[in-house]
């Protein structure tokens, strides 16, 4: 795996070596207990009481490099510079910048989302004409930022990609809608609302899109069960997928 760039290696090192940044790591929420996911049946590995915490949040330092270049100024620095120049509240709006696996992510505070995406679209040095939807992610352990909305952007003019990530707490699941800037996100935001319960303020008609209108709950949240029934096969019973032993 020598082809990885330093950011990624740093993150993997943080994953694999608990000694690295121990204090920082100890503050992270618990990701899992035990070596394996099994809690009831024979885990004889002796690691049953292991506490594994989430890896600390990575944030990149300048220079950001580019999709293939690392350690030197590159495409990602150009994007960051252009955004900084065009969006006056850059410092306040951007929570952190992540460069990972050749991709650039701006973690944006939700109050600034609309302004940032408007700049991304309109500034000639940025010109991200295509928004490729929004994908929700649910991290129940991240108190205060349980729900994430991830927006991939594509610039046809400059042939570049960038990702915007917004977080919000489960108790106040509101994120501004960007349909006014990118009409293509109409259905994508409806889908994310349907599946995660993220409310996109300002969306013209935020209704369910996949599930029936009277459905209760948001199916792709982590606390929502997958469902399924035990299946009997040749005398043995196979439990439904979400109740099987997992090796998470």
């Amino acid at each position: 795996m020598s082809s990885q760039h330093p950011e990624q290696q740093a993150e993997q090192a943080a994953d694999q070596l608990p000694a690295h940044g121990e204090e920082e790591r100890a503050e992270q929420p618990i990701a899992r207990h035990g070596m394996f996911g099994a809690r009831t049946t024979g885990d004889t590995s002796g690691f049953g009481r292991l506490v594994v915490r989430q890896s600390p949040k990575v944030s990149a330092e300048r220079p950001y490099g580019g999709p293939t270049t690392t350690g030197a100024e590159g495409e990602f620095d150009e994007i960051a510079d252009a955004l900084e120049a065009a969006y006056p509240d850059f410092g306040e709006a951007i929570e952190r910048v992540v460069v990972d696996r050749g991709e650039l992510t701006f973690v944006v505070r939700r109050t600034h989302l609309l302004g940032v995406v408007q700049t991304l679209r309109d500034d000639p040095r940025l010109r991200f004409e295509l928004c490729l939807g929004v994908s929700g992610v649910h991290f129940p352990a991240e108190t205060g930022a349980e729900l994430h909305a991830v927006y991939p952007f594509l610039s046809i003019t400059h042939n570049r990609r960038v990702r915007i990530e917004v977080t919000c707490p489960d108790t106040d699941p509101h994120v501004p809608s960007i349909v006014a800037v990118y009409p293509t996100n109409d259905w994508h935001e409806r889908e994310t609302y349907d599946m995660f319960g993220l409310v996109f303020d300002g969306h013209p008609a935020l209704t369910r899109i996949m599930m029936p209108d009277d459905w209760m709950g948001h199916p792709q949240r982590k606390d929502y069960p997958l469902g399924g029934i035990p299946v009997e096969y040749r005398g043995a019973t196979v439990p439904p997928p979400d109740e099987r032993r997992s090796y998470v």
Binding site: E11, Q54, S55, R101, E103, V137, P152, R161, R163, Y247
Partner: peptide
């Protein structure tokens, strides 16, 4: 069990 994949996100 399958293989483990380092934490992170990609598109």
């Amino acid at each position: 069990e399958g293989f483990r994949v380092p934490a992170g996100q990609v598109y």
